[in-house]
Simulated scan of single mutants.
Amino acid sequence: MDWTLEVIVVPVSDIARSIGFYRDKLGFVQDFETDSGGVHFTQFTPPGSGCSIVFGNGPGMSAMQPGSLKGLQLVVSDVKAAREELIGRGAEVGDVTVFDERDGGTFFGFDDPDGNSWAVQQIKARADKPLIPRS
């Protein structure tokens, strides 16, 4: 049986500001947005990912304090190119750190406007063998 992780709730304080950050500064794809009857939430998916994030004031989305989610991790095949892409979009990111010279040991990080923290890990093997096949 497959168990797929498909959505993570990210606690934010300002939905519009967060939409701008995840869409414009990170380049995540906005899958949908609902704003009706006092409920406002949206879903974004990083390019190439099988897992999305949601944020807003929908059911169950206020259990965590904005900025309290730490250690979300993205994986890319070229961490330097990914970092430069985010900088080019206007995102503030940390320096590249090599914890281990083997594939998988190189990272940089960034925070969203509320302080939710993200790590970006380089796994060069993903360039030729992505987890989700490209069509």
Rank of each mutant, 00 (worst) to 15 (best):
K25G: 11
M64S: 12
S62H: 11
S135Q: 14
R83C: 06
P113L: 04
Q30M: 15
K129V: 15
M1R: 11
G58W: 04
A125D: 13
D100K: 05
E85F: 08
M1T: 09
I19H: 03
D14M: 01
E84V: 11
A91F: 05
Q122G: 04
L131G: 14
R102V: 11
L74S: 05
G105L: 03
T34L: 15
Q43N: 13
V54C: 12
A91I: 00
P133W: 06
F107S: 05
G60A: 06
I8R: 04
S13A: 11
G56H: 03
T97A: 15
G67R: 08
S68Y: 06
R23D: 12
G105K: 05
V76F: 07
Q73H: 10
P47D: 02
V120W: 04
G94P: 00
M61S: 08
V93S: 07
S13K: 10
G90H: 01
R134V: 09
V76Q: 09
F44N: 03
Q65W: 03
V79I: 14
H40F: 03
V76T: 15
D31P: 07
I53D: 08
G67K: 06
A125H: 09
F55S: 01
D35F: 03
A119C: 14
R23Q: 12
K129Y: 15
G20T: 09
V7T: 11
S77G: 12
